[in-house]
Design a protein around this nucleic acid. Sequence first.
DNA 1: CAAATATAATAGTATTACTATCAACTATGA
DNA 2: TCATAGTTGATAGTAATACTATTATATTTG
Lengths: 223, 223
Amino acid sequence: MNTILSNLKIQVNEKIYVKDPETSPLGKKIVEQSIFLIDEIGFDNFTFKKLGEKIGSNESSIYRYFENKHKLLVYLSSWYWSWMEYKLVFATTNIVDPTEKLSKAITIVTEKVTDDTNTEHINEAILNKIIIAEFTKTVQTKEVDQENKEGFFLIYKRVINRIVGIVKEVNPEYPFAKSLVSTIVEGSLHQHFLTEHLKTITDCNESVSTTEFYLNLAKNVLR
Amino acid sequence: MNTILSNLKIQVNEKIYVKDPETSPLGKKIVEQSIFLIDEIGFDNFTFKKLGEKIGSNESSIYRYFENKHKLLVYLSSWYWSWMEYKLVFATTNIVDPTEKLSKAITIVTEKVTDDTNTEHINEAILNKIIIAEFTKTVQTKEVDQENKEGFFLIYKRVINRIVGIVKEVNPEYPFAKSLVSTIVEGSLHQHFLTEHLKTITDCNESVSTTEFYLNLAKNVLR
DNA sequence: CAAATATAATAGTATTACTATCAACTATGA
DNA sequence: TCATAGTTGATAGTAATACTATTATATTTG
């Protein structure tokens, strides 16, 4: 996986950006540093002006890459889920036993992320923290239907449906495969959030535990 | 329940408001109409100025009740979960069989809400729509730890832990009761959202189905 | 009726979320 | 190597947001 990812470019829907940030040093810096700044001050307090100051660049230059901060967050999310899809595919390819395949998939998608050193300008561990704290904000807007039509959430839906396929291999009779998987994926982000901030309503306390909970859940539901 | 609720006042943590909106006609109007306006234009586009125009009142008057729009949303959420707790308690009291009790509880908490005509100025059906679309925004902020300390989310956590108690009656051996319940409660809001906006990653399509999915899930996990 | 309280109207500030313009610098290719 | 296209930076400006402060006017209560 290592060598392959370093040659592969994560593809993000062109409609999300004004200019592809991967095509210039400034673009890469915007992406790289926005991850740190959003993690640091939170998306709600994040502005292009502050990011400009952080990277020693002008606010107006950032607008040449992203229409607004919402689009930047959608970009980061798309990148994340696209990267997640690679991890998923590589972890499950050539595994014949559906149950084992599903376990690997659930593990990939629910465990805490460590930095993938193959992508130079993106720190996946921090990006994962952002996804945990802010991902629902990319979807939960009044513009969701419009943006869904434009394909902003395709990658996310593809990740879900890839796992749905595995669930159906494990148990073709189970009638709620899609809801189960979307519950696991979204729910694991939520459990990670609770582990950090509202500990009294979760049993998860370290990275492995959230995964354990969902592995156990899936096993019980699909047996 | 009807007669009792019409006499009971839903209690909301005093730190959430500047002045209790239940104590004046203007306060009630602010709460009543904010629900309609947030539903209509979304929380992100909602401002006190727009609300003032809608209710024929001045922006500055609204600030005398709520510090900012975030606090107003926290107020609406607290009200909602408090009301949900009443429904829960009344639906499960005097039921001896834990399994039946849990089924009632899961049904209450996952089903689509219809207006409760006993509360004059609050339309619960619309409020439920707001909770589905915006609830995570009340929690997912940089101030979550501070606000949690001040007790802003106590009611929500109490609802979760009340159901956790029932889960433990059903199966005292199950090691993830808290995570299961928080997954169900938060997850059902998410499934309702997907049903409306991202239909390709959910199996739920009408009110009953989300409940069915989670009843089935809980049954399989706890047997 | 007086005093206290609630509300409305107006004004003002700092920040946000942009857009527009123009100058400077950089890379390319003829 | 020069011309030119494209990128970035600097500055300015606008409308909206998120408030705070002040004063006037109603309304309630004792």
